[in-house]
Design a binder for these strands. Structure first.
Lengths: 158, 158
DNA sequence: ATGTATGCAAACCATTTGCAATGAC
DNA sequence: GTCATTGCAAATGGTTTGCATACAT
């Protein structure tokens, strides 16, 4: 996939730029983590990242993963999400579609919702004393599965 | 404040209704927690709630507070927020203005942003296989304080 | 050579859990 | 009287921290 490789190259350059600007070191670990994140799809948590990397190319300590994610968040190459549980989830954030998340409050299932125009409205919002860099929209509710499960449970009770 | 007392009465009734419907018990602790939440303003975390209640009317164990908050979330009398740190914050959710949150990624400061019409657009969003009950919009960026602090730091370096 | 970044293990701390005692029904 | 709920204290688990070692500069 040429496109994906292109993106990997671009984000690597962006990260390099960021590290240089901040006077931070360009370590193998940092680039390996970035590369791994941009090789995967969807959301991941720290344990998933740690396990997957251990299984494959590169073993990196948890401490380093946490440290590096902090940098990637700072330069906006990664987004952090907290969907209501204690574990944080992350996703790559370059050249990806604008999307929101719907979260089922019963089973915790998270789905992506494509943007259909809300973005422009939110970004045109004027805020005093605040310069917005990005935003997250979380929609909570009940997914069809859980809705149906509830219904049949209620029917049994009656 | 008559208005506040009214609201307290209404949410108490709503909670009672919810407990009855679910076949759960109407304990003093549960109503004390609800009352305390609706007596306070703004966001709070579990420790704040626990401490404040201990200092005032009613001492309730942490376990019970966690348990009760779960119920209040379920019947939408309380909202839960995770602003990026490990601690969860909560706020009452009845008859309150529609608002979003702006979060400074430098200092963590959270401010409320009044809704100016985004709500209707979001609520008109059609979602397959999902019935939305509520949503949260978080805007991340830099507050003026931190922006200025950064600038003067950069100037010193140059 | 210098000092930042890593890896490890221990510490931290919000949240969850198990269980005996309490109290709503 | 029964069993859900409470309070307590211990356990859990994601995240953070301290420190010796490694390595980017």
């Amino acid at each position: 996939m040429v496109d994906k490789d292109n993106i990997k190259q671009i984000v690597k350059e962006k990260f390099t730029e960021y590290l240089t600007e901040k006077g931070l070191r360009k370590t193998q670990e940092r680039f390996a983590i970035l590369d791994y994140i941009y090789s995967s799809e969807g959301h991941f948590d720290m344990e998933m990242l740690y396990e997957s990397m251990s299984r494959q190319h590169f073993r990196v300590s948890r401490a380093t993963i946490y440290n590096t994610i902090e940098l990637l968040l700072d330069c906006h190459l990664v987004l952090k999400h907290q969907f209501g549980k204690n574990t944080s989830y992350y996703e790559k954030n370059y050249n990806s579609d604008n999307h929101y998340h719907s979260i089922c409050t019963e089973c915790g299932m998270v789905q992506e919702i494509k943007d259909t125009g809300i973005r422009e409205i939110i970004q045109s919002e004027k805020m005093k004393k605040f310069r917005m860099t990005h935003y997250c929209l979380y929609m909570y509710g009940i997914c069809t599965n859980c809705e149906n499960a509830k219904k049949s449970k209620n029917n049994n009770n009656v």
